[in-house]
Design a protein around this nucleic acid. Structure first.
Lengths: 145, 145
DNA sequence: AGCAACTGTAAACCATATAATTACAGTAAT
DNA sequence: ATTACTGTAATTATATGGTTTACAGTTGCT
């Protein structure tokens, strides 16, 4: 699947773990390990969903909105990676003189949709809070008090 | 995901619907709408699993083995497209001095594995027979008796 | 007002992944 | 032997995805 889903989870987790709940695209890009422009693109979409607020200008950046921790990975999947199961190339073709060739596409489409539904149900069971908790656990295991 | 999974479903369905349960790579390639060499590659893998028998030489081709209709799409997924959920690019990195960056990869890995398990469970519920039946229904709807 | 530090967005560029094609050795029927 | 197949690897073409550049728009600061 699409890696923007991965980036979104990363960014939101990162913001949540900062005391200020805020960072700019350059700082986030360093953690995600990509270019700031890419972060701005993904966070632009998250802003449209109300998950973050952006502040332009000096001292600006991205601020995590309250309640965003309740968002599920399913929500993020649907926003950023929906449809990723179906390959860009598929077999057959409507116009071919073969019962299988002309009908397989519709049938496979249904199967991909069903698979996607199963995947979404699974991702709906995971919240950002869950991911954040796991990061904290992993961190405290590395530096036990 | 990988389109070889799609090709495998197509080929096996096609063979099953032929009276002789047999066809050569050129014929199959026309229906799938790809190059014969690609069909040979995929069917070579299916042969190793015992789903088809190949016959080389004149008059040769691929013969569907008895019982292959019981195979599930999950079986074919595992054989041809396992691991397709995780994107080739992922965020973060072990070495980065950031709690999120250094731990996210392992956590996302688990999530992708879980998603894949959910997907497999869904695909395990669909047999080749189901697909074959749907093709036949679609065909008879187009040409009612 | 003017500068500096940000975001928003699109375009150009580059790397990687995927499919098509070519090529040829091996095998079997006639 | 010849012909019609498969097996498989190498090559080429194309599509996708990520990086980078560029620049306009916004805001805080002096």
């Amino acid at each position: 699947m699409n890696s923007e889903f991965n980036i979104a989870v990363h960014c939101l987790t990162l913001l949540s773990l900062k005391e200020e709940r805020m960072a700019n695209s350059e700082e986030i890009a360093k953690s995600v390990c990509t270019h700031p422009a890419r972060i701005r693109k993904v966070l632009g979409l998250l802003r449209k969903q109300g998950y973050v607020t952006t502040k332009e200008g000096v001292g600006g950046g991205y601020l995590l909105n309250p309640g965003t921790e309740k968002v599920t990975l399913g929500d993020l999947y649907r926003l950023l990676a929906r449809g990723s199961l179906k390959p860009s190339w598929c077999s057959g073709g409507e116009e071919l003189p073969c019962e299988v060739a002309s009908n397989i596409e519709g049938i496979m489409d249904q199967i991909y949709s069903g698979g996607e539904a199963a995947l979404e149900r699974y991702l709906d069971g995971i919240t950002l809070t869950d991911v954040i908790n796991q990061i904290e656990e992993a961190g405290s295991a590395a530096n036990p008090t």
